[in-house]
Amino acid sequence: MDAPVIRFAGVSRTYPMEGELVEALRGIDLEIEQGELMAIMGPSGSGKSTMMHIAGLLDTLSRGRYELEGEDVSSLSKNQRADIRNRRIGFIFQSFNLLARCSALENVELPMLYHRPGVAERRERAMAALEAVGMADRAQHLPRQLSGGQQQRVAVARALVNRPALILADEPTGNLDTRTGREIIRLLSSLHQQGITVVLVTHDPEVGRAMRRRIFLRDGLLERDEAA
């Protein structure tokens, strides 16, 4: 049996805030196996985003240990974390986070700028990723010429393009209407069917129920862990 994709052991995160320490995560133990499709739920301020940022190596942990695919990544350098973000993890944000001055295609190419395949391969792979999310015909559009749902599809393509083993999505439907949101969830589920581990944060109980596994956070602690 392979090592879990994510393994948290006593993971804590504190932020200094006006002289005090805010405890966003207070000792989380969690394992996420390869090929899981999982939702993280919980009230606002419970630490969902913090947990995603740590899992995505966007943020560092204050205490505890984090193993990614069996490898300890708790105390890597900035550049090492950048490399892992680039090659092994795709991150999807609530607010899409596309570069406003770049076309859809260029946005999808962005991670490959730092991974250096040749120009032709870069274009080809970016087009394939846009194809996979149904956005190939909008490759030359700028983000502001696209609807929210379309922008989020481009963001999904960007997360996919370096063929990561893990995709993390922090409230990917938060800025979308229900119907468009469902389409994005369907898109993410289809990625899961291709063997990618998908973890997403959602407030929508119906979306949560559609996942194989749900965990619930409260005040920085893991409150409940239920499998469907």
Partner: peptide
């Protein structure tokens, strides 16, 4: 955004 998708320092 650039750093999030893997840009190094």
């Amino acid at each position: 955004i650039r750093m999030a998708v893997g840009a190094r320092e």
